Computed example of a mutant assay.
Amino acid sequence: LLNTELPPSIDNAIKNLSDKPTASIGTTVSDIWYIVFGWISSVADKRRIQYAYSLEQFRQELENSVSRIPPEKQIEPSFQATAQALENAKYCVEEDELRQMFCALISNSMNSDFASNVHPSFAEIIKQMSVLDAKIIRLFKTRKEIIIGLPVCQFRLNFSGPSSYTPIPDHIFLELPDVDFQLCSQSLSSLSRFGVVSISYEKKLSTPNVYDKFLSHPLYQSMRKYLPAPIDIHIKEGTVELTPLGQSFVKVCILD
């Protein structure tokens, strides 16, 4: 491999591999290896096949997405954004939600309607996202518009007046009712760390009845029923909003 002349001892050892006794030993060792470790190789092969399938899906999805860009809007993509997206995508192609985000990012970087919103950090943000992060950020986009804010709340335990409270847990988010609210709370904190959302309890949404679902949440109902006096619980209403970076991220990285 190094294109150098091997010492005679090593050269002879390599040649001996083709001799009958050595070849037989090699076969025997190989057979024993398969008996002991064969399942590991099988699992690895299965992973490779699965990855190759996902990679081909990614290629086809990207090709289809690029082909839908009107010819008059096609532009040369940013090398920085595209190279980073492809590099980071290789770690995420097996997750549909993340793969589709990379597909949107790369194809929209070639579209003049979106190019000004593309930021080099988007590829790294997607790479660090969990599938749940992706599902939550996707809620901010409908087919017609970008939704700026969604409802969130804290269940606050009051011990000695409104200025002394403990939130349990930090953020209650119920827009994905089939997902544990504590997992959603973790994802909101992660999305906030990425800089794509901000969480505030200083303002709330004006949509009628949008916070009613929190009043019927089992955790809230249970605490109201079983907490001893003088501990009180109340709901602090708030909003999860897209930051300016988040608005560009949703516009670029989420396909309609």
Rank of each mutant, 00 (worst) to 15 (best):
F181C: 06
P7Q: 08
L98T: 00
R156H: 06
L227M: 12
V210W: 13
A89M: 00
S206R: 11
F173D: 05
K135Y: 06
S24R: 15
L219Q: 11
D19L: 11
V152E: 03
A83M: 14
N117D: 14
T4K: 15
I40Q: 15
I32T: 09
P21W: 08
L62D: 00
T22M: 10
V250H: 01
V118D: 01
A23M: 11
N158F: 15
Y34N: 14
D232M: 09
V93W: 00
I125S: 01
V179N: 09
C184W: 01
S190M: 03
F102A: 04
S116C: 10
F140H: 15
K141R: 12
N111A: 06
R138M: 08
S78P: 06
S9T: 10
P151W: 11
Y220I: 06
L17G: 13
G149P: 03
A52I: 07
T4G: 02
T4F: 06
P218T: 10
S18M: 07
K144N: 14
R48Q: 13
L255F: 03
V118R: 02
F122W: 03
K135R: 15
R143I: 06
F37M: 12
V240S: 07
E5P: 03
S164T: 13
T4D: 10
A13M: 11
A134E: 02
I106E: 08
T243M: 08
N158P: 02
Y220L: 07
A104T: 12
Y165Q: 00
L242E: 02
F181H: 07
A23G: 07
N12M: 07
T28V: 13
Y201S: 05
P167Y: 01
F194N: 06
P177W: 02
D212Q: 10
L215K: 15
I233E: 06
T239A: 07
D96K: 11
D11W: 06
Q182P: 00
S121V: 08
E94C: 01
Q128C: 03
I172P: 01
A229T: 14
V179W: 05
L174S: 04
S130A: 02
R59C: 02
L245G: 03
H119Y: 07
I49S: 12
Q100D: 13
P208H: 10
L174F: 10
Q186I: 12
I75G: 04
V210Q: 11
G26D: 02
I235W: 03
D232G: 08
F181R: 04
P169I: 09
H217M: 03
L242K: 00
P77T: 08
I147F: 05
Y165R: 00
K46Y: 12
S222W: 14
R193H: 11
I40M: 13
I75F: 05
F214E: 04
F249I: 10
I35K: 13
I14F: 14
S189L: 13
S24I: 15
F159N: 07
L157G: 09
A44V: 15
R48M: 12
L62T: 01
I231R: 12
T22D: 07
K203S: 15
A44M: 13
F58S: 04
K225Y: 14
W33R: 05
P71D: 05
W39E: 14
